[in-house]
């Protein structure tokens, strides 16, 4: 019984986290955040390679 309850709880947590992650990605795309990631990615990050 305890195992079934634990399984149900985990199922709920999973579903909530999955829905939240999709919601966050959707919000981010609407706010054009994916273009920020691209802008950063196309440049050489000098700090990241130990310069700057």
């Amino acid at each position: 019984m305890e195992r079934i309850k634990s399984g149900k709880l985990i199922h709920v947590v999973r579903s909530v986290v999955l829905a939240m992650s999709l919601l966050l990605i959707g919000t981010g795309i609407m706010k054009q955040e994916h273009t920020e990631v691209l802008q950063k990615a196309v440049k050489i990050c000098l700090e990241c390679i130990g310069i700057g």
Binding site: V17, L18, S21, L23, L24, I25, T27, I29
Partner: peptide, 23 residues
Amino acid sequence: TALGARHHFPFYVLGTMMLFGIL
């Protein structure tokens, strides 16, 4: 970058990390 250079809540990046994490 989202937190330090743009100073906003990182919706897209956090969402992507959570998606890979939960899957």
